[in-house]
Design a protein around this nucleic acid. Structure first.
Lengths: 168, 168
DNA sequence: CTTGGAATGTCAACAAGGCTGACGTATTGT
DNA sequence: ACAATACGTCAGCCTTGTTGACATTCCAAG
């Protein structure tokens, strides 16, 4: 299906037709829809959307992160993020603590209620991801991650790799 | 990194920590950003957006497709799609031909100008995808596709597989 | 100690692109 | 003749992104 060859130098060559690459593009499109479908369904009833989910996810992932840090991870403007954070704080899902060293900074934490929602959302998303992983097998998962990482922008890859170090 | 085992029955078991699955989720998030970044940049100057890109892509992919068909592929309402199609038709990028057998249907085609834009957009996106494929290697690409397909909703997978048959 | 700049918050206005609901018009099939 | 289908359109709403302008608070350098 996808042909690969090796030169003497050991460099991998891929003989990819435009058609094969296009299938990859479309797979990405459809898969991302599935990827967001479950959290979207959960959030549909509430006054929250995908933007709230993303904020909650990364606050959960990096408790105490600053607004600026979150900004660069999410890749949106502070005004856009602020609107989301404001509602989350007002609704008691997120707590914003003034920094101790630098009192300009706000450190963000999930409240118990926020953690509960995070759990609900990520459970749904993780279930789907886990099912996909199981269906595809370990080798496929490794390849999946490799291609995704190669598809990121430089800055994002750095962010991602930095999070890898801190993670697990 | 990701451990896999096999039972006697031949069924693959994956021992995935929540952490590993979460990394997959975040990889998906960051990669999708990269995935759309290039077309977004191109479209930023024009009066078009991601929605126009998607319509153009699938009209290019299935010339003569009907509005209803496009609707179910894109997963949006007809009002939403109509807004996009209206501008594309008005700007002369898309042509809408009344069906011959069923005159209620409109068959959509790209004009030369529409094809030119499609080319620009997909060139950028394909370059990135191709680079990622090359960086990751053939085995990784196969795995990538397997996981993506497993991540889709049922209906979408059917759509996708149907397009596979017609494709290449 | 003053001041420039950084980090944050907030207001206003706007646009893209989703959505629902309602309605109109051809056309087709029963 | 009539119901259903395919499509277009108007109106209004929501989320989430954008820019621009401005206030506040604080750190750090002069």
């Amino acid at each position: 299906m996808i042909e690969g060859g090796r030169t003497e130098g050991g460099q991998t060559l891929l003989f990819l037709t435009d058609e094969q690459v296009r299938k990859g593009i479309e797979a990405m499109f459809f898969a991302y829809r599935g990827f967001t479908a479950d959290p979207d369904r959960i959030l549909a009833g509430m006054a929250y959307g995908r933007a709230h989910h993303r904020a909650i996810h990364f606050i959960h992932r990096s408790p105490g992160t600053t607004v600026n840090n979150l900004l660069s991870i999410l890749g949106v403007t502070k005004q856009s993020l602020n609107r989301v954070l404001r509602t989350l704080i007002a609704e008691g899902l997120v707590e914003s603590r003034i920094g101790r060293q630098d009192k300009r900074e706000r450190h963000l934490h999930l409240t118990d209620e926020g953690s509960a929602l995070e759990q609900r959302l990520s459970d749904a998303q993780r279930d789907r991801m886990r099912a996909a992983y199981r269906a595809a097998g370990p080798a496929a998962v490794a390849g999946f991650r490799q291609v995704l990482e190669a598809m990121m922008d430089e800055d994002m890859r750095r962010q991602f790799d930095a999070m890898r170090d801190r993670g697990q």
